[in-house]
Nucleic acid binder design. Structure first.
Lengths: 331, 331
DNA sequence: CTGTTAGCGCTTTCAG
DNA sequence: CTGAAAGCGCTAACAG
């Protein structure tokens, strides 16, 4: 394996000059630049980046921690991060934490040990369970929630939730159920806050019996739908806290002979691709996933370059998409 | 930032001993181990992994090249890779190539420059467009196709395709259409080969007019369905080369008033999660995505450890899942 | 078991 | 503009 010294020897120059040709060619005479490039070609020399990074104390790498990479929303955020990172010559180290705090610690250690320059966390978290921010660890939270204790990028979950409920109210729904995420999940908390706020404004009392806890996965949506079917005073509309559970609910109600949206309206959250494919297409809140990734990466790179970002919280616009799954209630 | 020398000084020992405590503690006396750990804690020392990797010439990193990370199938393969890599103390560097060969070259360079020990490629390729294998670059192809010129992991695409068509034939279908992927995509080639093989065996002539080229994306499936609707001698069943196009086709036919499966049967490929959610649920070929990722990682790690893997081609079992979207044709 | 020492391959002053 | 030389922080002989 050829080293810089071999190249120097081959070119009849010093290692310092060769190094300069690679990083600051304008400071080397044209003649010697050519000599060096010829030697590099002849020896098929590839600089050892590990040595380069070690020496220059810059890893040019960021780590992205994700609870579950096989989740389309996260995958899209990551895609946005990659775009920005690549454009700046940064690599992204993927950290699939499988929702384990121990794993998160492991990945944070990567930046403490200089393997990476900073970290983007895709798990939403509040002060209580926050491993971040941490001294000496540059970090930003993507897809975060209210009161995130560090640089963060998110949508206004509370506002989006209010918008969904107002849409249902305006269609004439009075009894609106919820399939939420896990109780202590930050997104659940924010979206539930919006729900309560909206119905309160409409003069409707909060009825916990029609707020069923899900876990953002398909099966929990299905089982919630079954529970709703058994109710004597069933809601005429259900607001689901993500698309996956909404799609499951549609399936669940259909199987019990209820038609969506004629018999019951359903809304989602996220706007996954499939949400425009299914029958009926889903009314939902579109999060700008790729954009959120891009912004997070820009923020982190700014931090790494010791710029001070303009703001701590970056709240991106969402879009409320009305499709076929919502309609006025039968009376 | 504390270095190993600071720790050595604090503990009243040499750097060699400190280093050994970290890597081979059994070769150091208990007493000194304690001293070292105390010094580490006191100084909040974190070893510089960049120096460590540089010195030991092992990056303990693999790069995964993926054409599009926001594709659930790939995301699942990656998840499998992560699992195995993490268990062996390896990190995975994510390389979203966005289908660009130039980007692939960039990522391959990472292993040539010792930033990574090897690479897993998720884009299927043949000899013609192969950047890999390459001297000095350990690599394995995950989700590959026939005639992949390197270590590879895949399912038997030809056989799976035959199975799908035989299922449709056994239901009584005689005119079976195809929505394929891009013509020169290796998976398209393998699956089309299976299709031709199966109808030939059934004594049916190949009719290119009912084989419509898609691109594995939703919109191409939708437009193909519309083309089929216009045909006077429309097929009674359509074999789609992935689930996304199959789901689009179901939507397309439904919009034209055709019922699936009563009026037309549809099959997919991949078995994405949504395929069991949609209405009707989709008959499809389930690829063991996570397993494929795990196997690929195991293979690459073996290569890195200079073991010689048992085989070059690893063909994993697929599962043919019969659901609601296929039924006998109306006559 | 412990300390000493010689680098890994590269970048970066600093003279010339 | 170029070369010589001093390390970056760590590991791995080797000698004691």
């Amino acid at each position: 394996m050829a080293t810089i010294r071999d190249v120097a020897q081959e070119a009849g120059l010093s290692t310092g000059t060769v190094s300069k040709v690679l990083s600051h060619p304008e400071k080397v005479s044209k003649k010697n630049q050519i000599k060096v490039h010829e030697a590099i070609a002849k020896l098929n020399y590839k600089p050892n980046m590990l040595a380069q990074k070690f020496r220059s104390k810059r890893s040019n790498t960021i780590v992205v921690m994700v609870p579950d990479i096989a989740n389309l929303f996260f995958a899209k955020v990551i895609s946005g991060i990659e775009t920005v990172a690549q454009a700046s010559g940064f690599s992204v180290l993927l950290g699939d934490t499988k929702d384990s705090l121990a794993q998160e610690k492991e990945f944070i250690k990567m930046v403490e040990t200089r393997l990476a320059d900073g970290v983007i966390n895709l798990r939403p978290y509040r002060k209580s369970d926050a491993l971040l921010p941490k001294d000496g660890v540059l970090s930003v939270a993507a897809s975060s929630c209210e009161n995130t204790p560090s640089y963060s990028v998110r949508i206004d979950n509370v506002g989006a939730s209010v918008k969904v409920i107002n849409h249902l109210l305006s269609l004439g729904h009075k009894r609106i159920g919820v399939i939420s995420g896990l109780k202590n999940n930050p997104h659940t908390i924010d979206r539930l806050k919006g729900y309560k706020q909206a119905i309160a404004e409409a003069g409707i009392d909060y009825d916990p019996s029609i707020v069923i806890e899900g876990d953002f996965n398909y099966w929990s949506g299905l089982s919630a739908a079954e529970q709703f079917c058994k109710m004597t005073d069933r809601p005429t509309a259900i607001c689901c806290f993500n698309d996956e559970m909404a799609i499951a609910a549609i399936k669940g109600f259909s199987e019990k002979g209820l038609k969506v949206p004629q018999d019951i309206s359903i809304t989602g959250f996220d706007d996954m691709d499939v949400s425009k494919y299914i029958i009926p297409t889903l009314t939902t809140v579109a999060q700008p996933a790729e954009k959120m990734g891009e912004r997070s990466a820009e923020l982190l790179l700014a931090l790494i370059n010791e710029d001070t970002p303009s703001a701590t919280e970056h709240i991106l616009p969402y879009e409320f998409v009305i499709r076929e799954s919502t309609a006025p209630p039968r009376h």
